[in-house]
Design a protein around this nucleic acid. Structure first.
Lengths: 398, 398
DNA sequence: GTTGTTTATATAGACTCTAAATTTAGACTC
DNA sequence: GAGTCTAAATTTAGAGTCTATATAAACAAC
C-alpha cells in the first residue's frame, strides 16, 4: 500500500509470461490436455496456445504425447505436464523425529525417509541426521541434487514471512541457529523454512480434510498446543512469525497451560489412579499410563477413562472456542500425535462449543496422520516452484 | 488455489491497463509530477508515459498544468492527479451517532456531517438519518450524487469479504437488514459495507499511529471491546466476517466480559463508592460517575480513581495479551470513545504485558479520535476506487 | 544570435495477441 | 481406393503495446 513499487514496467513479453504461467497452472492440475482443451481453459486462441506450449516444451515443463485416437477430424496434439521435470522435498524437523518426503511436481510422493532425533544433543547432530534422511530419500528414488527445485522445511519455531526463524527467541536460537542457512547454502536448492503448524495448515488445505476451506485453523494438539491460521487461503504470520502461538492459553479459564491432549490425558490418568477408591482397567497396566491406553480403555467402556476424555474434550473445546471466536474459521482441524484417536472427542467438543458461541466452527480430525507437516512442507515447496516456474532452470536427471 | 480461474486471457491492451494503473497510483500519491519524474518512478519510457497520460487526461483522472518555470532546457509537461475527478463518502453508522465524511480522491475531507441516532427506534429511521447526513455533506460541498464514486459504510456487525452483513446473526438482522441494499440501490454509487473495527484498522494504518505498520490490531475499547486485525497489510474477515470478535473474553481470567474500558470504569466507580469508608473526590459529583470523571480525578491524584485505572489497565493488558500472543501484531492501537484519555493507561498496560509474553506488541493510543471509523471508511472507498479506476466513468460536477 | 540543455514528438522495430484463411491428418462412405 | 467430412494444425494478416533512436522544440545563459 505504501510501496512506490519500482517494479519493472509492463512490456510485451510480460503477456507471454502471464499466459504461459496460467497455461502451465491449468496443465499441472489437469495432467494431460489437448490443444483445444487448453483453448477452452485459458481463453487463449489456438495460435497462442501452441506458441506457449512450444515454449514450455523447450523449457522442459511440458512434454508432447503421441496424438490420441481421434474419433473424427485431425488428431489433437496432446500435452502433458512434465511432473518429473524436477522434484521437491518436504521435511518435517520435529522434536523427536525428522520425516522427509520427496515428491514430483504434481506432489506425488516418490520416496520417503526418516530419522529419530530422540538422541540428538547438538544442532549439528540434528542437521546431520536430517541430511542423512534427505540423502536416503534422494538415493531411493534415484533423484540427483540438481533435480531438486526447492525444499520446504518445517520447524517447531516461529518463522517469519521471509523464512527466518525468530532470532530474538533464545530458546529457538539455542535450538537450531544454523539449520536454515546450512540447508540453503549446502545444497543447490532453496530451503524454505516455515512453522510446523503453518505447514500442517497447508497440508490439510491441500490434501487433508480442509480442501476447499479457505478460512481455516489447524490445531496441533499432541504434546503441546500450536496452531496454524489461514484467512482467505493465506497463512498468517504476524510481525515476527508468531501468529498461531498459544501461550495465551495460560489466561484461559479451564485451560491454563499449553499442554496438549496427550499430555493432559496422561496427567489426568495419573491423578485418577492415585485415588485408591477408583476402579479402572487402567490399573492393570504396567508403568505410567499413556494417552493411547486411555483412549483404548474408554473404547471398551472404562468409566474412569471416559471421565478423563470428557474432561479433555471440554478443555479442548475452550481452546477451539477462543480460536473460533476471534478468527472465525469455517473449520478447525485437530492434528498431531493424537489426531486419529481424538475423533471420539469431537461430539463432546462440538456440544461444548455451542455453549460459547452461536456460530461455532466445524471441528474435524486430521486425515494426514504423521505426515501432516511433511505433506504441508511439500506443498510449501510446490508453491515456490509454481511462483517461480518460468525463472527456474530445469536439469534432466542422470 | 483450487480455482481454475477462467480469467480473461492477457492481451496487449492489458499492458496499457497495468501501466496506466501504476502511473495513476504513483501520481495520486505524489500529486503533481513532470513527465521525467513519471519516467523515473514507473520505469516506462517517455513515449509510453505521455501516451498513458494523454489517455488519463482524456478519461478525466489527470489534468495538465501550465509548464513549470524551467531552470534550464525545455519546460516539462506537468501532470496533476485530478483529486476532484470524483468524491468518496466515509460513513460511520454507530450505535449512538452517524458520522459522514465527504472526501476527494486524495482523501482530503471536503465536508462533514452527522446525526444523533440516540432516539432511533426502527431501521428505517436510522437509514433516514444517515441519508440526511449524507445529503447535508454533499450539499455543503456542492457535490452531486453523480460525482460520488463509492461510499464506505462502517457498521458494528460482522461483515464478510463480499460486504454482506452476517444474516445468520439474529441481533444484526433485527438491527439493520436493509441498510446495505438500501444505500446501494437508492444511490448511484456502490455502498461498501465493512465492520467498524476493521475500518478503524484501515484508518489507523492510513492516517493514524499505525502508518507503515502492516501487522496490526486495533482494539475499539469504549463501551464494548471489538477488534480489527490486519496481517501483512490485509484485513482479516474469517469465514463469516466474524474475525476480530471478542466474545472469547468471557473465557479469559481477569476479563470475563466484553465490556470496554469506559463501561468497566463506571462499574468500578459505582462499586468503590458503595463502600462508605473510601474517601474520594468522586463522591462530590452529582449522579453516576462517568469514565471521563474518573480519568480527571486520577489526573489530580485521587487515590480511588487511580486504583480503578490500575485495575482497568491490568484487565486491558490481558485483552491485549491474548490478541498479541495469538496474532503477533507489531502494534496494538487502542481506539474508541476513551482513546485520548486511555493514554495514561499505556505504561501500566505495557508493564503488565511483559508478564505474559517476552515479545509483546507495542501499544499506542489512536490519534484519530471520533473519526477513526469514518476515516477508515473513506480509505475503504478509496481502495475500491483505486482498484476500479480505469473502469469507472467520471462525471463532471454541475 | 549562438550554444547548450532538457524535454517533446515522430519513426522504426520487436513482441504479443486475435482473427481469418488455408492446409493437414485421420475416419468414414461409396 | 478415391472422394468426403471433420476437427485440428498451420499460416498469414492486422492491431496494440512497448522500447530505442532520431529529430524537433522551448527556454536559459553567454
Amino acid at each position: 500500500m505504501a510501496t512506490d513499487s519500482i517494479t519493472a514496467a509492463a512490456t510485451p513479453p510480460l503477456l507471454r509470461r502471464v499466459n504461459a504461467a496460467k497455461l502451465l497452472g491449468v496443465l499441472s492440475r489437469a495432467g494431460v490436455m489437448t490443444g483445444t482443451g487448453l483453448i477452452e481453459a485459458t481463453g487463449l486462441t489456438r495460435a497462442t496456445v501452441h506458441a506457449v506450449c512450444n515454449d514450455l516444451i523447450e523449457m522442459g515443463w511440458v512434454v508432447e504425447l503421441d496424438p490420441g485416437h481421434a474419433t473424427v477430424g485431425r488428431p489433437s496434439r496432446r500435452f502433458e505436464f512434465n511432473s518429473r521435470a524436477g522434484y521437491v522435498l518436504g521435511v518435517d524437523v520435529g522434536a523427536a523425529r525428522s520425516t522427509v518426503l520427496l515428491a514430483d511436481l504434481r506432489g506425488v510422493t516418490v520416496a520417503k525417509a526418516g530419522r529419530s532425533l530422540a538422541a540428538v544433543k547438538t544442532p549439528a547432530e540434528r542437521t546431520e541426521l536430517v541430511d542423512q534422511a534427505i540423502e536416503e530419500a534422494l538415493g531411493a528414488a534415484g533423484v540427483t541434487h540438481a533435480q531438486v527445485l526447492a525444499a520446504g522445511i518445517g520447524v517447531a519455531a516461529p518463522v517469519d514471512r521471509a523464512g527466518h526463524i525468530l532470532a530474538d527467541d533464545e530458546f529457538w536460537r539455542l535450538f537450531d541457529p544454523a539449520l536454515g542457512t546450512h540447508l540453503t547454502t549446502l545444497h543447490h536448492w532453496p530451503a524454505l523454512l516455515e512453522n510446523d503448524a503453518n505447514l500442517a495448515t497447508l497440508g490439510e488445505h491441500w490434501r487433508g480434510v480442509a480442501q476447499n476451506v479457505d478460512d481455516l485453523a489447524v490445531l496441533l494438539a499432541g504434546e503441546r498446543f500450536g496452531s496454524g491460521l489461514m484467512d482467505s487461503g493465506r497463512l498468517l504470520h504476524g510481525s515476527r512469525g508468531g501468529a498461531g502461538e498459544m501461550l495465551y492459553l495460560k489466561l484461559v479459564e479451564g485451560v491454563g497451560t499449553t499442554h496438549g491432549i496427550a499430555r493432559t490425558i496422561r496427567a489426568a490418568a495419573a491423578t485418577a489412579l492415585a485415588d485408591p477408591n477408583l476402579e479402572s482397567t487402567l490399573r492393570e497396566l504396567a508403568g505410567p499410563v499413556s494417552a493411547e491406553q486411555v483412549f483404548a480403555a474408554a473404547g471398551v467402556g472404562d468409566v474412569v477413562a471416559l471421565g478423563i476424555l470428557r474432561g479433555v474434550a471440554r478443555r479442548t473445546a475452550r481452546v477451539i472456542a477462543t480460536l473460533g471466536i476471534l478468527f472465525n474459521p469455517e473449520l478447525v482441524v485437530l492434528g498431531g500425535g493424537v489426531a486419529e484417536a481424538a475423533g471420539v472427542l469431537v461430539p463432546e467438543i462440538e456440544a461444548e462449543l455451542s455453549g460459547f458461541t452461536t456460530t461455532p466452527p466445524r471441528v474435524a480430525v486430521s486425515s494426514l496422520g504423521d505426515a501432516i507437516v511433511s505433506v504441508g512442507a511439500v506443498r510449501h515447496a510446490l508453491n515456490y516452484v509454481e511462483a517461480h516456474a518460468l525463472d527456474l532452470e530445469l536439469r534432466p536427471g542422470g
